[in-house]
């Protein structure tokens, strides 16, 4: 298992988990969201092929009312 910081919370994932699998734990949406790993935006098309290092910081964002 590896530890990933997902939207600010420490979570455990199986070794070799991809970014797509990590994102799926927090939301089933694939549209209207964006993902950054260690403050770098990862495009949607690359989620399934992006492996994560232990301790990686993953942020999943969406639009909310504001401004």
């Amino acid at each position: 298992m590896i530890s990933i910081r997902l939207n600010g919370t420490e979570e455990q994932f199986p070794d070799g988990s991809t970014l797509a699998e990590v994102v799926q734990r927090i939301t089933s949406a694939t549209q209207g969201i964006a993902v950054a790993v260690d403050a770098q935006v990862i495009r949607r098309t690359e989620w399934a092929s992006t492996a994560l290092r232990p301790g990686a910081q993953v942020d999943v964002l969406t639009a909310v009312q504001g401004g």
Binding site: G8, A34, T62
Partner: peptide
């Protein structure tokens, strides 16, 4: 709109 982390109540 603002951009914020997805949460359970999002």
């Amino acid at each position: 709109v603002a951009m914020r982390r997805v949460s359970a109540d999002t």
